[in-house]
Write a protein that binds this DNA or RNA. Structure first.
Lengths: 172, 172
DNA sequence: AGAAAAATAGTCAATCCTGACTATTCCGGA
DNA sequence: TCCGGAATAGTCAGGATTGACTATTTTTCT
């Protein structure tokens, strides 16, 4: 996923940041679109430094432990520009992990299957509700929210279809 | 992704298969829902053998190279049953990699952005067309196709929305 | 003041995944 | 019958990812 690197570069363009700050921001403000774990973040930052896209420097505030501050380089800026343009044009098909169990739906009675899929649907609907009650976000993040919303609605409609066909089979 | 293991178990329940056969089937018939690379397949099969879920035996047909035939064990069957039920109830939220570049849409002129997103849309639409012309598949795979179809339609609608708002901004 | 909880700032070992590679065999056409 | 390409059957080294862990400092509450 090159887009993860794009993300770090994009964030560092506005201001130099330290690791904790980057991780916080990603977990808090970008939870809609990605979930980069802390060790992954450091791994990627190190890789990007090795490549010359960013630099690290040490900083100490008061008695807090030393921390590394990351800063984008001109090379990094060039990389950002080109990756941004490339990835903006791309459509990458997504696989849905939860599709796989459906391949074996026959192994369950329609009754049992319905019960499980209802549980699944409840989780989906509660996700959907959270989304619908999320206040409007600033800037372009709003577009991701709407993306997610549409996606969840499509999921719900599809699950309903599956469930209603299962019910039909049950009645036969 | 535990569902990958579920998939292998589910396939081996019907008949013992060798590695090549498993890989072929996944690439040809299950391309809608997953893309497991060959080395990953062997890796997972070995892991599952170590765990006692499947057994390997060697087989030779004519002069062809020796090959390993995988077969599910009773322990594997139990694992399959429990994983199937668990995963059937689960809804796992999906992240869309292509959302990330949108966070930096401001960095481009609306004109440039539109051009790129139009390219993206074309790719999406050609995917959609392929889906719509795919003949009805047998069994439960059909449900995955419909899932994908709905998802692609939602994507297209969302992209249209983004594009039309961009155009509005351009006119101001 | 003292203790528990939260915030800060990472690291490490292990797991997962895949591009690139190796080899052999079969098959159709010149 | 000889050659090239497709099919067969995997392996290996290396990159990506993360759960669990370590340590210190600040804050809060009593």
């Amino acid at each position: 996923m090159t887009t993860r690197e794009l993300l770090f570069l994009g964030l560092l363009r506005h201001q130099k940041m330290h690791g904790y700050q980057l991780n916080e921001f990603i977990q808090q403000d970008l939870a809609v679109c990605t979930d980069i774990k802390k060790p992954t973040a450091y791994y990627l930052l190190n890789k990007m430094e090795a490549r010359g896209w960013i630099t690290q420097s040490s900083e100490q505030i008061g008695n807090r432990p030393l921390r590394r501050v990351y800063q984008i380089t001109p090379t990094g800026e060039i990389a950002f520009q080109s990756m941004l343009r490339e990835s903006m044009q791309e459509y990458t098909p997504t696989y849905f992990e939860d599709d796989i169990p459906l391949a074996f739906l026959d192994e369950l009675t329609t009754d049992e299957a319905s019960t499980y899929l209802e549980t699944r649907k409840e989780q989906l609907l509660s996700e959907l509700e959270i989304m619908q009650n999320t206040p409007v976000h600033p800037g372009t993040v709003q577009w991701m929210l709407e993306h997610r919303l549409r996606h969840l609605q499509a999921e719900a409609a599809w699950l309903d279809e599956v469930l209603s066909r299962l019910t039909l089979m049950e009645e036969e």
